[in-house]
Design a protein around this nucleic acid. Structure first.
Lengths: 292, 292
DNA sequence: TTGTAGGCGTTATCAT
DNA sequence: ATGATAACGCCTACAA
């Protein structure tokens, strides 16, 4: 049984791709890992190893991990999710010749990979407008979490752009902030909305499918027909979206694809390929179902 | 930036708990990891490190990984999911003084942790019988996959025991085998069942909630009232179970709890605690909703 | 070809 | 105390 440690110490190189996230578990993380494992990893591109790390959301752990990897050449490439090396860390990676691919995070000098939230939201709202909807409520996430980043801001920008292009004035009274992206928050907000005087004919729930389904259920419970009275669009395309009654129209996040793509870029970069796109924006697809 | 590798080489010890599974991603694996991270890990018990490995389902990788860890003392404890050390590997761990906790897998000499599938199925079927159901179909998984193990067998045993205790004769014609645990397989089987002459009044879908929901939808589409004509019980308690219409009664798998418990045992064992239970069977809970 | 010394970064041991 | 040195296991380079 040869010792990995000794070999690494001796050669100064570890043949593996490191995947670093804020934790080991979450729906998003799982799907990214699925993409990594199931496509390139299992198949040809690169078959040396994959090491999975978590920073536990701690900046200190993040820094130590990055430093150890860069300094000790403990990976041939690094894929990060929700975290990105800062300037100093990035320059350490550069010095070590380790390419970095950041998913849903940015770092100058790293290959960036993210979902086009603005484009996705724009598609959704434009579609609603095309269906004749005019009073479109927006349920959005709060900013603040590291994992969330600018996502809510970007989605709102897409919403606003679609309204603007259609000449619809934005009504701030139709916007809600949601903290935990839960079913219950969706219910609560829909109730509030229906009890107010606002006459809405659609809801774009940028805060995800769970929220959207909660909103849908409450609307139905309060006598509204979906989609006739109120059309609802979600975001994510989780399993629950197709299970819902009516099945939920939603913006599908290509999460697994992010994983595949990141792994592919890592592999190509390791193989010495040059001229890889530094910023890749992946456009989500609008999945049209019965709720619109 | 001190070198982990060099320290390990020098001291011959690595302060971490190793988690080893057949892959990095799957709903089950994610939840076990959630349990590990979110309970003991984040809190007090043990806070040195967690290393996550995948065998990629390959026996060779499994063996190499186990050997490397045991030989190089690359962990203070090992938690495995769906895989277990064989006799030689186990004795290597013993020799190295590394405790092993296996989840949903067995190894003599290791601490075993698993869901009481038989008990869960028994509860479900007994409940159906208590509700006056007599012709209870069973949709079960196929044996064969490593990750599945004896699960289908155990669940069927619970089903049979409940029938036996109630004096109901087992009708092999009411049993179906399902391969991929999908929604569609559930639909298909329900259709077949309803088109046959079998007059069933309940279905216990030991093959999971997705299947159960598929079966439910098809039954409804073919004019059956749920739960009046046919009661349906699933297994797992995924998110979809409470979203379904009607909400699905199901046997909740305490998956996250498995992770917590395994981590706790690892930590205790590292701390030198003796007399830990070698076999722990965790009884799942029957969650009663509208489908029964 | 086969064999052997030196070095990788850290800890531990043994002198000073 | 403080500082030099062997040893950890493997790889590489150079010598036989």
């Amino acid at each position: 049984v040869p010792s990995e440690q000794a070999r690494v110490l001796s050669t100064g190189k570890k043949e593996t791709i490191a995947f670093i996230s804020t934790r080991y578990e979450s729906a998003f993380i799982s799907d990214v890992l699925w993409g990594i494992e199931n496509s390139s990893y299992t198949k040809g591109l690169y078959d040396k190893g994959l090491s999975v790390f978590s920073t536990r959301g701690l900046d200190k752990e993040k820094h130590e991990l990055f430093s150890r990897i860069a300094h000790g050449k403990l990976a041939e490439a690094v894929i990060t999710l929700f975290v990105a090396p800062d300037k100093r860390e990035m320059s350490a990676f550069n010095k070590a010749g380790i390419p970095v691919i950041t998913i849903e995070a940015q770092a100058p000098g790293a290959f960036g990979l993210k979902v086009d939230n603005k484009g996705g939201a724009y598609q959704a709202v434009k579609y609603l407008i095309g269906k004749g909807r005019r009073k479109i409520a927006l349920i959005n996430g709060e900013k603040g979490y590291e994992e969330v980043g600018d996502t809510p801001f970007e989605r709102k920008a897409g919403y606003l752009q679609a309204l603007r292009e259609a000449g619809i004035k934005f009504d701030p009274g139709l916007e809600a902030q949601v903290r935990d992206y839960t079913f219950d928050e969706g219910r609560d907000y829909m109730k509030k909305l229906l009890l107010s005087n606002k006459k809405i004919d659609a809801v774009f729930c940028a805060a995800g499918d769970m929220c959207a389904i909660g909103a849908m259920e409450k609307a139905a419970a309060m006598g509204k027909k979906i989609p006739d009275d109120i059309a609802v669009v979600g975001f994510d395309d989780m399993w629950a979206a197709q299970m819902a009654k009516p099945a939920l129209t939603t913006v599908r996040q290509p999460v697994r694809y992010l994983g595949e793509k990141a792994f592919e870029m890592a592999a190509r970069s390791i193989a010495g390929e040059k001229g890889l796109k530094t910023q890749t924006l992946i456009t989500p697809e609008l999945i049209i179902r019965q709720s619109t």
